[in-house]
Write a protein that binds this DNA or RNA. Structure first.
Lengths: 244, 244
DNA sequence: ATTGGACAAACTGCATGCACTAATCGACAA
DNA sequence: TTGTCGATTAGTGCATGCAGTTTGTCCAAT
């Protein structure tokens, strides 16, 4: 089963890259895109579970699969290594990083702490405009809950959290939060498919927003921490059944 | 003036790489070291101020300077980009990242928040052994203060903070802390040369340790936050005069 | 049967070359 | 004089080739 899906996904990715190459070869190459696409494709292979932790990512095979040379493959692997999805050792093949349940838990914990800090600082520091925008976005997303638009809500969700990070007015903190968030993405992907999760997510957001609008730092902090913790348990359930 | 120092440093780095290459060419190549050395060398160029923010890092010049081909240079730049020291855009030269005073402040703030979280969790979670080791190390470092051993104390200081990160028993949190710490290293380098800083650092550590041994999370958190904040102001003073 | 070593195949690390992009400079026109 | 439009040069992105290393396999010796 794994092999089949792997091949299927591989061919899909190859097609994407290939068509992109053909289409843009004489148009808007805007190069660098090749590597970027490869990063996404390989990341998807890992995220979707087509490649298992510990599996070798040898450069030649990947180069053949994606119909590019080894150079961009190497660069892509470098970036994936930096982002933590794969591991590299000198003179050895890159391998898909093992994410133990324990490590996953620690990532969610770090995420919760980061969001808590961001929420607190947001409550203290957001400008009037930022508060208004946060509130507006949040209110606007209510209808997505009732119409069960998981994908749209997901987009809104990202926007919401990004506003939280920016609102702390601490560039580096936002960077750490975004980075951790990206690294958790694979394990959080399907959380909104849990029945009722959408509505509860909205309610949790509501508590955070209310606290921030009141400039109540501690309350915002606690609400954000709780929110992420719930996402954590909701997601690890999926991680268990989905990837293992 | 810039050009002179740049050339001087360049030749030094080139020599390092060159001699390394010659020495290891037939011995213990342990490859991957080439790129790693380049990363350090270029990072040093940036950290020491030999290259100014916004300055171009063109691959060919670097390849010539270090007497290697462009391939490892590109990989080194990739890694430096991932670590945040340089920025890259498609089809443009990599440039030294601008670290504004504001961004620097945000990094220190993030560091303070991270350490605060780690200290709190350490107070709550450290095993008996970890507490004992932390205390022992801290107590042992007292004599370094009186004998004014800045370098040794610096080494101890790193060990102390690393124990704090590990003590939180959250792998990813420790990773974030270490990463941020590494990124701040250039700006914190000379803090212990401020008269009396050593003794005060020890006292601040003492407050943290005491709180952790008492399993008093909030106190540990506050103490760690305060400690980093003080380091921040002590260091930015140097950043102002040293790098600008 | 098991273990040790040697050989072979596969793969990584780096160098070099080519195609395409971007930027700078000069020329021409307004 | 200035603004705009080519052309040339410098530099990036990717492909390919070679050297060195690792790993897997096979044979021999214990």
């Amino acid at each position: 089963m794994v092999d089949i899906s792997e091949q299927a996904i591989t061919s899909v990715c190859t097609m994407q890259i290939r068509s992109a190459k053909l289409a843009r070869k004489k148009e808007i190459i805007r190069s660098g895109t090749t590597v970027e696409q490869m990063v996404r494709s390989i990341a998807d292979l890992i995220i979707t579970g087509a490649m298992h932790p510990g599996e070798r990512l040898d450069e030649i095979s990947l180069a053949n699969r994606f119909e590019v040379s080894r150079t961009p493959v190497r660069e892509a692997l470098s970036q994936l290594c930096a982002s933590g999805l794969v591991c590299r050792q000198p003179n050895k093949s890159a391998i898909v990083t093992n994410v133990t349940q324990k490590h996953l838990a620690s990532m969610f914990e770090a995420m919760a702490e980061l969001e808590a800090v961001c929420a607190r600082l947001s409550a203290e520091r957001m400008t009037v405009d930022e508060r208004r925008m946060l509130d507006a976005e949040h209110t606007a997303s209510a209808r997505l809950v009732y119409s069960r638009c998981e994908d749209e809500y997901e987009a809104h969700n990202i926007e919401f959290h990004t506003r939280l990070y920016r609102g702390a007015h601490s560039e580096h903190l936002a960077e750490l939060a975004n980075q951790t968030r990206a690294r958790l993405a694979p394990f959080r992907r399907a959380q909104f498919r849990i029945p009722g999760r959408l509505a509860r997510s909205y309610q949790e957001h509501d508590v955070v927003v209310t606290a921030i609008l009141r400039a109540d730092g501690p309350a915002a902090s606690l609400a954000a921490y709780t929110h992420v913790s719930i996402v954590s348990t909701a997601s690890t359930v999926f991680a268990d059944t989905g990837t293992d």
